[in-house]
């Protein structure tokens, strides 16, 4: 029971990490709370549903969703956020919430208010490798999450692009004066963050075999809470905070506390505590 719940928690935590990663990356370079990131997450799941007609293979479906979501992320940066950059920070936030609502309604218009299945086929029969502790589907989600997080880690820490992001984050003027194309760096940031959110959408759709218009609603606000817990802009803090929340949720639902405290409230309880006690995040510096 303990190990099963731990695996459940780590699996959800991995998904939270994937969704929150883009959010915290965007906050890092632009200082914008990118709520519609959760719309990109849901879009990923819908692209998955469409992509199923081309190929049932999970890898193909995920890559397609990543591609489309990455491009949509770049378009959002270009057409939604860039025109608003000069305005006060509340303006892009409201625009982002509006965009998220619009996306949910577009999903409803395009695909109906139904729950759609996402029965992808998994390579190597990984989903068949079920043991008493971990199900095959969990293995699929976990291994995908690890691959994507390692990819993000590599780009952030071992490429010119990653260095350009950090420089832009700390002082975009000086970065620009030394030849960093700040515009493109920010666009690439959205590209990677949104692509990973799209992959998370496919993984969640596959894990629960359900895709529906409002599937981004809870992640939208939960990811925000996790991003703050991890210290906004702090990528590794975010991953750890995501795993913590996933694990705490998993154990809470089987404990007596779970009878009166709903699972989705944990992140917010933690958020409130952190804002009261450590407003710079669990791992942040003052």
């Amino acid at each position: 029971m303990f190990w099963q719940q731990l695996v459940n928690g780590v699996t959800m935590g991995g998904i939270y990490a994937l969704v929150t990663l883009g959010l915290t990356m965007v906050y890092g370079v632009l200082r914008i709370l990118h709520i519609s990131h959760a719309g990109v997450f849901a879009l990923g799941a819908y692209i998955g549903v469409v992509a199923l007609r081309l190929s049932p293979n999970l890898v193909v479906v995920t890559l397609l969703a990543m591609l489309v979501c990455g491009l949509v992320g770049v378009l959002m940066q270009r057409w939604l956020y860039r025109p608003l950059l000069g305005s006060s920070r509340i303006v892009p936030l409201i625009a982002s919430i509006g965009m998220f609502t619009l996306m949910e309604d577009l999903f409803r218009l395009a695909a109906g208010p139904y729950v759609l299945p996402l029965p992808v086929r998994v390579p190597f029969g990984l989903d068949e490798v079920t043991t008493s502790v971990v199900t095959g589907n969990q293995l699929v989600v976990l291994s995908s999450a690890v691959i994507l997080l390692v990819l993000a880690w590599f780009v952030i820490n071992h490429t010119r692009l990653g260095l350009a992001w950090k420089a832009t984050e700390q002082d975009f003027e000086t970065a620009a004066a030394f030849g960093v194309n700040v515009d493109r760096a920010v666009a690439m940031n959205f590209l990677l963050g949104s692509a990973i959110a799209g992959a998370a959408g496919v993984l969640v759709g596959f894990y629960y075999n359900s895709v529906y218009p409002t599937m981004g609603s809870v992640p939208a606000y939960k990811a925000m809470a996790i991003a703050v817990l991890g210290g906004l802009g702090n990528v590794w803090g975010t991953v750890i905070a995501a795993l913590l929340i996933g694990i705490i949720e998993a154990f809470l639902v089987i404990s007596p506390v779970g009878l009166f405290l709903p699972r989705d409230s944990i992140a917010f309880v933690a958020l409130i505590l952190v804002l009261l006690l450590r407003p710079y995040g669990l791992f942040g510096r003052r």
Partner: peptide
């Protein structure tokens, strides 16, 4: 063109070597 800006504008959370690498970004 390159500049030594007013107030140094060293990247505060990049290492010395990373600061230099940004200098050579182009």
């Amino acid at each position: 063109m390159a500049m030594v800006p007013e107030g140094r504008r060293v990247f505060p959370d990049l290492s010395v070597e990373q600061n230099l690498l940004i200098g050579a970004y182009s």
